[in-house]
Design a protein around this nucleic acid. Structure first.
Length: 277
DNA sequence: GTGGAGACATGACTCCGTAG
DNA sequence: CTACGGAGTCATGTCTCCAC
């Protein structure tokens, strides 16, 4: 006959297994093992009841075991229902895509399956700090907050890591990193000065230019010819052009693919009246 | 019109170096 | 040690071109 502490130990085993099953995907092996353990404990309780040694504490332990098994059964059943429903939806979707005519399928394909990042706020921040597009941790968190404030779909929420990668990729792909090496010899302070000079040269507001160099402690902004006295006028022009390309890249984002704006242009052109056949 | 090949865009991962 | 940036790279989606 098991003592009360031994029964308690068995219950702990049952609870541990139930917890494992709830945390992981509960497979049939969990349920079988759990059921066997529970059966052993219940058989012991029945036996103690028969011989008149079943205490109220032991009865409570048995009730807790029953509750855990019910809980697990319910979770299992719920998961099976969800899996079935997902499987059915996936099958329908695959069959729909496979059987659809190509034209309709192409149109559908334009809705990218992998949700594009909501880069509006990151893009905006980048353009406001083009001289030094390296947000601090707090600034990244603010961008995340701003981005996710306007996102109702939890599946498309921007993660910290995504924002970090976006800035790394964008600096590289916009040509910013190349510009840094080409015109500032890898010196970020120098590039900030160049950006400030370009900003002053162009004049206007952030809205008019579409970009800003970002905040700087400098009080006097040197001219480009002072900053880069050895650079020829044609090379300075090339630099201005490269800078404009960076601005263009960050502003537009290549997600607005050629095909998309061509479609818009085509749609905007008034169609000639169709000739009767 | 359709299908395939190749190019391109983009998000994400890994590895390594660096700064604090 | 940790966080971060840069570079290289991969996976996937999209687009364009071209042969049929």
């Amino acid at each position: 006959m098991l003592s009360e502490s031994e029964l308690g130990e068995r219950l702990l085993q049952v609870e541990y297994m139930a917890l494992q099953a709830l945390v992981n995907s509960p497979g049939p092996e969990y349920v079988a093992a759990l059921q066997s353990l529970a059966d052993a404990v219940l058989a012991e309780a029945m036996m103690q009841k028969r011989v008149g040694t079943l205490s109220s504490a032991t009865r409570r332990l048995c009730m807790r075991i029953g509750a855990r098994i019910n809980q697990l059964t319910s979770v299992l059943s719920q998961q099976h229902t969800e899996v079935d429903s997902l499987r059915s939806a996936a099958t329908k979707e695959v069959s729909r895509i496979v059987t659809k005519p190509r034209r309709a399928r192409r149109a559908k394909e334009r809705e990218r399956v992998d949700q594009p990042l909501n880069a509006v706020h990151m893009r905006d921040w980048f353009l406001r700090h083009l001289g030094h597009p390296f947000p601090t941790r707090n600034e990244k968190l603010e961008i995340l907050l701003e981005t996710n404030r306007s996102t109702s779909n939890p599946g498309s929420r921007l993660e910290y890591n995504q924002a970090m990668l976006w800035f790394i990729n964008s600096r590289r792909r916009s040509g910013w990193t190349l510009f840094l090496r080409k015109y500032a010899n890898g010196d970020k302070t120098m590039l900030m000065d160049i950006a400030k000079s370009l900003e002053t040269e162009l004049g206007g507001t952030h809205t008019q230019r579409g970009w800003s160099a970002g905040p700087t402690p400098r009080t006097r902004i040197p001219k480009l010819t002072e900053l880069l006295p050895e650079m020829s006028e044609s090379r300075l022009d090339q630099m201005r052009s490269d800078w404009a390309a960076i601005v263009e890249w960050v502003t537009v984002g290549v997600k607005d693919r050629v095909g998309d704006w061509v479609d818009k242009v085509i749609e905007s052109v008034p169609r000639p009246k169709e000739e009767p056949e």
